[in-house]
Nucleic acid binder design. Structure first.
Length: 727
RNA sequence: GGGUGUAUAGCUCAGUGGUAGAGCGUUUCGUUCACAUCGAAAAGGUCUCUGGUUCGAAUCCAGAUACACCCACCA
């Protein structure tokens, strides 16, 4: 053991080698662990296979690897299952941007060609992501890695679709959906971001058929007049009682429309008269349904007005608005305009104005009671939360989640894109019998393409062109990944122990996993949800490429080592709260890595001549070890209570300012003066060993590197620190 | 309109019903002795404000102020 260690720890020299030792040991897999301990499982939130990892991913790797390594050291049967997400819409957007740089678009290819290109692209990225996770030290079980488009996963997703369909929880319907004209696809409500905007409220005169007086209507969207099918007033509005039942004329095209009354019209807004445009507004749509009004859809899928819009034909929304106003002004129908502050929906990705668009889409009915218990998906989730079957950390998010579940509307799962899991539905074009027509020719077939229509025998079948919302598949991730692996995995590891993810996808992902998990398996998908915060720069700004303030985790690892980055992401990171990271902070923990290295180096140098027999300890030694025992208990308690930041901080503080600054300095003198030297070294070695174990989940590389240097002094069971025993 | 948070040192944040804490930064001093990616020391806070509970409140409660975030179909 006389090898000389360098004065400075250089992570680059060791990290790759150490990871290989772990991989070769088989310690990542629960099958190879000889432990009979209770299972502990984590499913990795699958990173999108469309881009390299960013700092946000490094946060979850640090936290999840910390948990996994801690529980592995405690002798539990641990599984951390990795995977990647095809991320339908997100990936398609990223890929189309790339195509645009080459002067191409998705329309330059057939659907199949495009799919193939994106497939290759994601497979390349998956490889990169995998290597990056390894660089960060992720001790996950690569033999169980999954991709959301793996055939066995898709099969499970389809089965869920079919069951939901049979239970009446999935339906196809023509509804107003959130439509982005730029991306030409619909979204669920969650993908719409509302922003406050100043707009103009226009007061317009609609002439009456039999009265020259006319009626004044206030609207922010004059361009939708061609879609008007009625005017509506509140039934209790004295001003307009006499007008109900009369006929008005739309001021652009002169079409005749009825005046009706409906309680949804607010008396005190504008003039108290609402123009009803069912194809372009949610409230209007509902009113229209109730009053059996026709629907006039005037906007085409490309975001331009169609021929029903008369003079506005071919124009996009902003131009059409100008043109409509010009015409109205000329006709003298524009009475006045006033400033008006309101919230407008935008595409979360490109910022385009979201248009409510009338489309045939697939929905999950989240509030519809089903089965013998007559409970809805939302009910199932709410009950599980109330019964504390799932614990959310921090706990205040439980309320947030319950509130969301209580106000849930049906979930649109159709996307008009080509990258993703195709909706497993065919439509019979023949519809030759009454039964077939009643069923609207809808054939749900999850295993293969049907050869003929089961209702009418028709041979002309067409598959639904849409794909499923990515969250519909990732919402099944915990059970799908476990079912798709060895058959006993689901039994052993489901429900999983912890779901660790960011608070920003609580609704998108966590809520859907709970609902679908309970639906499909009857059990919650996880016992604990740990929500970490989002990474900010030192000015509290969100990191983004456009702001140029992104920190590339891999570059950081290159300069300061994975351990320094990991510790910087754990300390000061309180669940549910965003965390601030700066290069100075990472540098500080790089210094700590070096501190561990040098303290160990010092002890190592002095250990050379000692035996491993336990010497007689002084009173002082006993006191030090007793205090250390208390400290170990504190760390264990912190970790058991998910107080990772506190545990990390306490370890940092103890190691540096108690162990290195005080204890080592004290023992140094004893060693030099040969005063109970053996005992002094025994104390140092004992504390060092246990500190390495406790630090290992936080900083796996440096601790394992040192452990390997001390290998000859450890028992045969503890040759690798990662699979040794928690003190 | 509804909801959820936050307010503690120059900065980033912990924290517990019992003498205000850490990291970074700042200032001073110190290198033959594991480490200058170091050590020793110092300065720096009415714990946002106002009430209440209490022997005792930065901590628990109520209100105020400020800020942040989330949700929502008032045209």
């Amino acid at each position: 053991m006389t090898r000389k260690l360098p004065k400075v720890y250089e992570p680059q020299k060791f990290e790759k080698k150490i990871y290989r030792i772990w991989e070769k040991s088989g310690g990542f897999s629960p099958d190879q662990l000889k432990s009979k301990g209770r299972p502990f499982s984590l499913i990795m939130p699958p990173p999108n296979a469309n881009d390299p990892l960013h700092l946000g991913h490094a946060v979850f790797v640090s936290l999840e690897d910390l948990m996994i390594r801690y529980h592995r050291l405690k002798g539990e049967k641990t599984l951390w299952l990795p995977g990647t997400d095809h991320a339908g819409f997100e990936t398609q957007v990223v890929f189309e941007k790339k195509l645009a740089q080459e002067g191409k678009s998705r329309f330059s290819f057939s659907r199949e060609e495009f799919y193939r290109l994106v497939w290759d692209y994601t497979q390349k990225n998956r490889k990169i992501v995998r290597e990056q996770l390894k660089t960060l030290g992720a001790s996950c079980d690569w033999s169980r890695e999954k991709f959301t488009l793996d055939p066995e996963i898709v099969k499970i997703v389809y089965e869920t679709f079919e069951r939901l369909w049979q239970d009446g929880l999935i339906y196809r319907g023509q509804r107003l959906v959130n439509y982005c004209p730029k991306h030409q696809t619909a979204f669920s409500d969650l993908e719409v971001k509302y922003e406050q905007e100043t707009a103009k409220l226009y007061y317009l005169r609609y002439d009456l058929k039999d009265d020259s007086e006319g009626i004044i209507v206030a609207t922010t969207r004059p361009e939708t007049i061609p879609g008007d099918v009625a005017l509506a007033v509140n039934p209790h509005d004295q001003r307009y009682l006499a007008l109900v039942g009369k006929i008005a004329k739309d001021p652009l095209l002169g079409r005749e429309i009825p005046i009706i009354s409906d309680k949804r019209v607010k008396i005190d807004f504008g003039t108290g008269v609402l123009k009803i445009t069912p194809a372009h507004d949610q409230t209007d749509f509902e009113i229209g349904l109730e009053h059996y009004l026709p629907i006039r859809a005037t906007l085409a899928k490309d975001g331009r007005f169609n021929e029903l819009a008369g003079p506005l034909f071919g124009l996009k929304v902003p131009e059409a608005r100008e043109k409509a106003l010009a015409i109205l002004k000329e006709k003298g129908a524009l009475i006045k305009e006033e400033e008006y502050l309101h919230e407008v929906g935008h595409c979360y990705k490109c910022g385009s104005l979201i248009e409510p668009m009338l489309m045939d889409q697939w929905f999950v009915a989240t509030n519809k009671p089903f089965g013998s218990q007559q409970k809805s998906l939302a009910n199932l989730a709410l009950e599980a939360l109330k019964k504390q079957e799932i614990k959310i950390i921090p706990s205040n998010y439980q309320k947030v989640l319950e509130h969301w579940l209580n106000n849930l509307k049906d979930w649109n799962i159709s996307r008009q894109i080509s990258w993703g899991i195709r909706i497993p539905v065919w439509y019979c074009q023949d519809q030759a019998t009454e039964v077939c027509r009643q069923k609207q020719g809808i054939i749900v077939s999850v295993s293969r393409k049907p050869t003929k229509c089961p209702y009418c025998g028709g041979k002309h079948l067409e598959q639904d062109p849409d794909v499923l919302d990515t969250w519909f598949s990732s919402g099944q991730w915990p059970y799908a990944t476990l079912m798709a692996n060895q058959p006993q995995d689901f039994k052993t590891f489901y429900p999983t122990s912890v779901m660790e993810t960011g608070w920003d996808i609580l609704f998108f992902w966590v809520a859907r996993m709970i609902m679908l998990g309970l639906y499909r398996t009857g059990k919650v998908p996880f016992r604990v949800v740990y929500l970490h915060g989002l990474v900010r720069d030192k000015d509290r700004q969100k990191m983004s490429k456009s702001k140029g303030n992104v920190i590339d985790p891999l570059a950081v690892v290159q300069t300061y080592g994975a351990d320094a980055l990991r510790l910087a992401l754990i300390i000061g990171n309180t669940p549910g709260r965003d965390l601030v990271i700066s290069e100075e902070k990472i540098k500080g923990y790089r210094n700590f890595t070096n501190k561990i290295w040098n303290a160990s180096r010092f002890i190592l140098m002095n250990l050379e001549e000692t035996s491993s027999k336990k010497p007689k300890l002084t009173r002082r030694d006993q006191k030090i070890l007793k205090d250390f025992g208390k400290f170990k208990k504190k760390i264990t308690a912190y970790l058991d209570n998910y107080r990772f930041s506190l545990a990390g901080e306490a370890l940092y503080h103890y190691f540096w300012h108690t162990f290195a600054d005080k204890i080592i300095e004290e023992m140094k003198i004893r060693i030099r003066e040969n005063d109970h030297q053996e005992a002094a070294l025994y104390v140092l070695e004992t504390i060092l060993n246990d500190c390495l174990k406790m630090l290992h989940p936080f900083m796996p590389f440096v601790t394992e590197t040192i452990w390997q240097q001390l290998k000859e002094r450890h028992s045969s069971k503890e040759q690798i620190l990662m699979t040794s025993q928690w003190p």
